[in-house]
Design a protein around this nucleic acid. Structure first.
Lengths: 381, 381
DNA sequence: CCAAACAGTTAAACTGATTTAACAGAAGAG
DNA sequence: CTCTTCTGTTAAATCAGTTTAACTGTTTGG
């Protein structure tokens, strides 16, 4: 039957007038007006497009979604009409009826200014670029205690805000991550791993980076090497301290517990830790730092207290943040491919969302970048 | 319809149970006592809640939206049921029928790693915090050329992705901003203004900051003061150069065009510009820089080429980025209240979205932060 | 030549909320 | 003892899409 013929010319008022008489459900009633084909005023929706193109909304929807069951002729006809009317599908309606919101969330720890942190910024940059290419929008959310307490991380899915989450800067202490163990809600833990391999995750090769850094310091002749670590509950952070201790022992050096100090991943913490280590062990000639910020703080402390870097003390960081190449002295550091990590994480997450079931676990290679903050061990009498 | 039936089956509604229908009570009991009130399986939607609570979906919706027309008794009854069933309204459906998506977008310029930039990060941090408190989600979008060409910035509204946009890091060169002049789409230009006051905007008091910086340098005895600027198409950036030139003239100094160089807002650019200025004018004793990054680059160049900072050359930046207090030397800089700017911008945007019509235009106070990169003019023979 | 397979399209049933006009019942006014 | 007003609640329309079963024609196979 021709669709056009089945259309009845009915006005809204008419329709209301005869609503009493139990129309058979099969009969379709469509408003039909004699307006010109183009209707510049008012919002265009799929029904309007369908009417003007002389097809059903199902057809328009299928054209929109490139369903192969639509013939080339119909496809062109509808596409032209979409073009002419400047129609753009309402994505709320699309998401409501399809299974996907096309939005992912980036979850950050509740640090004061997490977004101003170059470490997170670099990863998010990668995520954003990839998300854009995959047609995903990205929302950013900070996991404040209140947020977790109210299970807002699950609400993100349940209320259909997002299809998936990328969690940055969390570790095994963050118990809420266990809510994702069932894989009911697509989530990838970025730049860390989780005990028992119960979560999908991706991280940089901190172990390899630490290995390179320690080899370099040992080659330069350093023996009394301190370590400014942070977040011992983080597996990747522990990787660094483990390699640090192992390489020292392998070099015939017995590291003391007092060679290590917690710098809390901050500049202030790094400075304080450096102060502690140097006053405990004035003979210390090198410091391995868990991130660039702490390294910066450490250098700041050392220089302020009359130790030259690198002539008296060498310092190595982790991260390779952009502008620290411009610090004075510029920082020798382990380069972490944070941008690439973001890109990869986003891609993998979208795969998970679309039903891929393989456990995500990848480790991205790192390498040492030599700059000015390291030098050969000073000769002392 | 089935709604009425379900009302009768509900024990809670005693009032309704004995109304007109004259059914034998046995029948009602038999029918539905085997269905527990809680239905753990399957998604709960508003219809399910309404049925279990013995009310209509309209009532549940009104309870959800705290409509005062609902009686206290009904409100409590429904709220308890919502609690019991763990119901959470689908926000896609809510947004589809209400006028609001409860999402705002942060639009960033197409810089390589804009998100890793502390300047943007600080503002976004403020936006995120405020947005969270106002129940808004925040999506982040980079305005690549392709994005603008395809009018995706308008699509954000038309396809109901967002209710409003905060534009960061744009200036008068960015023609797409004119699309917002009609105020049809709520948008606030953050940390800049736009010719003819045709856009809502908020920015820091660059003029006042520049004034303080110049006064300080002049007080220290500096006469030959260079300026590393950037983005001359940006009104707020021009504020700084204008004040720079004016204050010099007011101090009886005639600044040359060659005292200024473009540093492109980057470390590299700052270093290059410093090199240019110092080689053109070896007698230069101070540099005013348009942002902290360029100041950092400039210091780096100077130190590398045997100029001591601040003994030979003083350097002042703009921004007051967190970690530059830990640089060596630490940076004297004009503090911009970027976090607060973000907080305010978000608040104002939400007001616009909710129909406020006053033109937004505010200027936030700035102040000079004294650190180590500035000192009195060196004595030369 | 008839039945089965196939291609293209549509009607109708979803998705899950909000909103408005209508309505029933109680209270207050005359 | 009516008539009006006020309150609280509901039915039904609406937002704007997707999806599926069913329904035409048209080929193709036996």
């Amino acid at each position: 039957m021709d669709y056009n013929k089945s259309v009845q010319e009915t006005k809204a008022s008419v329709r209301l007038a005869d609503q009493g008489d139990e129309r058979p459900p099969g009969e379709m009633v469509v408003k039909f007006t004699d307006t010109p084909v183009d209707k510049p005023s008012g919002k265009v929706n799929i029904r309007e497009v369908a009417r003007q193109a002389g097809v059903s909304t199902a057809t328009v929807s299928m054209v929109l979604n490139e369903n192969p069951r639509i013939s080339r002729a119909t496809q062109l006809k509808v596409q032209r009409m979409i073009e002419r009317m400047g129609y753009q599908p309402n994505r709320l309606a699309q998401s409501l009826s399809s299974r996907y919101t096309q939005v992912i969330a980036v979850l950050l720890p509740p640090l004061r200014h997490a977004l101003a942190d170059a470490y997170f910024g670099e990863i998010i940059s990668g995520i954003a670029d990839r998300a854009g290419k995959l047609g995903q929008k990205m929302i950013i959310e900070q996991a404040k205690p209140q947020f977790i307490k109210e299970s807002k991380h699950i609400e993100l899915y349940e209320r259909r805000y997002v299809d998936g989450v990328l969690a940055l800067g969390f570790n095994e202490k963050h118990a809420f991550l266990r809510d994702f163990a069932g894989r009911q809600y697509p989530m990838i833990l970025v730049d860390n791993r989780f005990g028992g391999n119960i979560l999908d995750c991706l991280h940089c090769d901190y172990r390899g980076g630490a290995e390179q850094a320690m080899n370099f310091l040992l080659q330069l002749g350093h023996r009394v090497i301190g370590m400014i670590y942070a977040a011992p509950e983080s597996p990747t952070a522990r990787d660094v301290t483990e390699v640090y201790a192992r390489r020292l022992r392998e070099a015939g050096i017995a590291p003391l517990q007092s060679w290590m100090s917690d710098g809390c991943f901050t500049d202030e913490g790094g400075a304080a830790a450096a102060g502690e280590l140097i006053s405990r062990h004035p003979e210390m000639t090198a410091l391995l730092c868990g991130n660039d910020k702490m390294a910066l703080g450490a250098i700041r402390y050392l220089v302020e207290h009359g130790h030259r870097v690198p002539q008296d003390v060498s310092v190595i960081g982790f991260d390779d943040l952009q502008h620290l190449a411009y610090a004075n002295p510029s920082l020798t550091t382990v380069h972490l491919p944070l941008y690439e990590l973001g890109v990869l994480a986003c891609g993998r997450l979208v795969e998970l969302i679309h039903g891929k079931t393989d456990r995500v676990y990848e480790v991205l290679p790192t390498h040492l970048v030599l700059r000015e903050s390291t030098g050969i061990v000073p000769h002392r009498d």
